[in-house]
Amino acid sequence: MKSCPQKIDFYLLIPFYNNLPGLLHSLQSVLYDADKYAVVIVDDGSTHPVTLEDVYRQISKNISVEIIQLPYNKGITIALNTGLQWIMQQNKASFVARLDCGDICTPERFYRQVTFLQEHPQIDLVGSWCIFKDFTTNVAFKYITPTQQKQIKRGMYFRNIFIHPTVMWRCDAMKENKLYPETYPDAEDYGFFYQFLLKGECAIIPEYLVTCEINHKGISLNSRKKQLNSRIKVVREYGRNRVLRYLGVLKLRLLLIIPYNLVFAMKRVLYGV
């Protein structure tokens, strides 16, 4: 890893598993001052581990990159927490941002989020709107969420307002050993973001700052029932409003019986681009 300066704006945390083309595609979309951020890649036991040589063939060697190799595939929650624990030990950054292999950032994404958090010290977590896109078929739809604190808290009973690859949060907000919970398989991010909501303020930037890849082999599609059951558990355990908690669980139970193809078709009709 190229040595980091004493203080940087953010670490970009990326879990990796056998997807070098997706990783490089994502890294090429990241635009920010090279000496003000660093990339942390957690290789979750890939059969073909990623190397610094792989990364630096595609991005500037002026960018700091740390690769953490796990000895075998432990799952995304452990991979993410391993990365977070390493980041907190460094104590060099103000913020942590997330990105997944295959997802693409707009050129202004990180400038907008860093500036937003610097100008709003009361906000611990910020996300953005995004576009979901199948890069093979070019089918795409918008993901639009509330932007006001009250509506965000209400909306979280019914869906995850914070799409994982769009978020940035304060390192200081994790000082209470805040990690991704391991009790919500395939919905660890939902539980993680709820922790921020219960203890501080969060926000959404109403701009499409990330294009998220629709991966039909991904967790959200292959493990949909497990994910929905985990989301039900999150709402039950973190939701404080009894009525909204009941309605949120009801919606998630309905999604369990509705075929995903139908849900996907409705999204294309309502939010297609």
Rank of each mutant, 00 (worst) to 15 (best):
His48Cys: 01
Gly248Glu: 10
Ser60Leu: 10
Arg242Thr: 14
Val50Glu: 01
Pro21Lys: 05
Gly102Leu: 01
Ser46Cys: 10
Leu228Cys: 07
Gln58Phe: 06
Val263Leu: 15
Leu20Ala: 00
Asp35Gln: 14
Ile59Ala: 02
Glu237Trp: 11
Leu209Val: 14
Asp43Ile: 04
His48Asp: 01
Ala140Asn: 08
Val126Asp: 11
Glu188Leu: 06
Glu176Asn: 09
Thr211Gly: 06
Ala79Val: 08
Tyr72Cys: 09
Glu119Met: 05
Thr166Pro: 14
Ile204Arg: 02
Arg98Asp: 02
Val50Thr: 06
Ile214Gly: 00
Met88Pro: 03
Leu221Ser: 04
Ser60Thr: 14
Leu255Cys: 07
Ile67Tyr: 08
Gln85Asp: 10
Ala173Val: 03
Ile152Ala: 00
Leu27Trp: 13
His48Arg: 03
Glu182Pro: 04
Ile68Leu: 14
Ala140Cys: 08
Thr77Glu: 01
Asp186Lys: 13
Tyr260His: 14
Gln118Asp: 15
Met88Gln: 05
Cys202Glu: 04
Pro185His: 06
Thr137Lys: 12
Phe196His: 11
Arg231Leu: 09
Ile14Ala: 06
Thr82Gln: 02
Glu182Asn: 07
Ala140Phe: 01
Met88Ser: 03
Glu207Cys: 06
Ala79Phe: 10
Lys267Pro: 13
Leu23Asp: 00
Pro21His: 04
Gln58Trp: 03
Met174Lys: 00
Gln90Cys: 01
Pro165Thr: 10
Ser223Phe: 15
Leu256Ile: 10
Arg253Phe: 10
Thr115Leu: 10
Met156Asn: 11
His120Asn: 15
Gln69Cys: 06
Ser230Trp: 15
Lys233Met: 11
Asn19Gly: 13
Pro71Asp: 15
Ile204Ser: 08
Gln149His: 09
Cys171Asn: 11
Ser46Val: 06
Thr211Tyr: 02
Gln85Pro: 07
Tyr238Leu: 00
Asp54Asn: 15
Leu84Phe: 06
Tyr11Ile: 04
Asp189Met: 05
Thr82Asp: 01
Tyr32Lys: 03
Ile87Ser: 04
Lys36Met: 15
Ile63Leu: 09
Ile204Gln: 11
Lys74Ser: 09
Phe110Ile: 12
Tyr194Thr: 14
Val234Gly: 00
Lys226Asn: 07
Phe95Thr: 07
Tyr56Ile: 02
Asn229Met: 10
Val139Pro: 05
Ser3Trp: 13
Lys36Gln: 15
Thr147Glu: 15
Arg236Ile: 02
Tyr208Met: 15
Trp169Cys: 09
Leu80Gln: 08
Gln85Ser: 12
Val210Asn: 02
Phe264Gly: 04
Val40Lys: 00
Tyr180Asp: 00
Lys153Tyr: 07
Phe116Tyr: 14
Gly102Thr: 03
Gly102Asp: 00
Arg224Phe: 12
Tyr271Met: 04
Arg242Phe: 14
Phe196Ile: 11
Val39Ile: 15
Thr82Trp: 05
Leu179Ile: 01
Ser230Lys: 12
Ile87Gly: 03
Phe135Met: 10
Leu221Lys: 05
Pro206Thr: 11
Ile76Asn: 08
Lys61Phe: 00
Ser128Asn: 03
Tyr184Glu: 06
Phe10Asn: 04
Gly45Ile: 11
Ile123Ser: 12
